[in-house]
Amino acid sequence: MADITTQDGDGIRTYPFPVDLSVCGVGLQVGPMGPGRIWHEDAPLDRVHRIDFHVVMFFNGGPVSHMVDFAEYRPSAGDVLWIRPGQIHRFSRTSEYRGKVLTMQPGFLPRATVEATGLYRYDLPPLLHPDPEQLAGLRASLEQLQREYEDATTLPLSLHTAVLRHSLTAFLLRLGHLAASSAEAARDQADTTFTRFRDAVEQGFATNHSVSAYADALGYSRRTLVRAVRAATGETPKGFIDKRVVLEAKRLLAHTDLPIGRVGAAVGFPDPANFSKFFHQHTDTTPAAFRAELR
């Protein structure tokens, strides 16, 4: 087979949809995941690469470590991983991939179906966690699609392809709905997580400047807290805490006559030198100079 891969300016190779490996050369494949599965005869799956087609993996085991666009995901049994054309990804050399995989060539479905199913919603999460009912529906739909895909003799090729498109559309409508609802649920969770963090900081910033301490108190992992705060504010949890501490220090310096050492102690810095250093780091001025400018 001729090498028709491309290489972008970043040196990452892009592999095309392997039409020659499909039944009847149609624009999709459905089959088991396994160590022998390839996109291309010289594609190193355990190295970073791109593909120009969709990949949907259903996992029967795990967890598996899989990189998509430089983020590591760990799908387990019952999870679905959806990789879209152009995304950079890498298989894990040490993970055992068990389950079923669907690959689909861009252009196999009409534009109206592409829009309805959200095939190019790159804002949606790659890793999906369907509940039991959603998973059962997806699996039944995928099994029907696989039966149609493997039945290459009952119908003429044109009708076989048309039936595949209809079956694939039914499956993708379910998958797209799951992806969109998962993203909405994730946003709601992030909003709730950030709100709880914000309220905790408001109550505790004068004595607690530790991200880990807030995470532990709220029952979140540090990583979950980072994602939620970044989604809500564009900054890190530590940056959010520090900004609140600086705001309170400015208020006390501007509106009270407390000595600077007492101001520092009021926002969690019993050592005046450490407070001055912190304040200067975040404002490019000293507490004394800031107070003098306002009086």
Rank of each mutant, 00 (worst) to 15 (best):
T286S: 15
A213F: 01
R244M: 13
D46G: 08
P18H: 03
F290N: 01
I83H: 04
A152W: 10
G34K: 08
S181T: 13
D188H: 13
T94E: 14
L157W: 09
L225S: 07
G219P: 05
S212A: 14
A180G: 07
G261H: 10
S212E: 11
D216Y: 07
S95T: 08
H280L: 13
V80D: 05
H177P: 01
L45R: 13
G78H: 00
P272I: 09
V48G: 09
T117N: 11
R295C: 10
N274I: 04
A265V: 04
P259C: 03
P75R: 05
V56E: 06
V263S: 06
P75V: 10
L102C: 08
A185L: 10
Y220S: 06
K238H: 11
G264E: 08
I12D: 04
S210A: 05
M33I: 04
G176C: 03
N208L: 06
F240L: 03
L175W: 00
D79L: 12
L252K: 11
L45H: 00
P132H: 07
T236W: 09
R93G: 13
L157Q: 15
N208D: 06
R165Y: 03
L155A: 15
R251V: 09
S167V: 09
W39T: 14
A206T: 11
V267E: 00
D10Y: 07
F278E: 03
D257N: 15
F197T: 04
D52W: 12
D191R: 14
R111W: 13
L28Q: 02
R37K: 15
D42T: 14
E202I: 12
A152E: 12
T6V: 03
R93A: 08
S158P: 05
H209R: 13
L252S: 01
T193R: 15
S92R: 00
G11I: 01
A254F: 08
F108M: 00
S181I: 11
L253I: 02
L28N: 02
T103C: 13
V23A: 14
H209E: 05
P16Q: 09
V163D: 01
H89S: 05
I83G: 02
V201W: 04
P132Y: 03
L128H: 05
A254H: 08
A213L: 02
H280E: 15
T5I: 03
H129C: 01
A170V: 06
A292D: 10
P44H: 00
H160C: 00
E235F: 13
F59Y: 12
T207N: 06
G204V: 05
R98A: 11
T113H: 07
A292H: 09
D199S: 12
F290R: 07
L128C: 04
S212R: 11
A43M: 06
L294V: 11
L159M: 14
D271T: 12
D69T: 04
H49D: 09
G261C: 05
D191T: 10
Q87F: 06
H89L: 02
M57W: 06
Q144S: 14
L81A: 01
L157P: 04
G219F: 08
F194T: 04
A266P: 01
V101Y: 00
G219S: 00
M57F: 07
V263W: 00
A213W: 05
Y73P: 01
D257P: 02
T161S: 14
L45W: 01
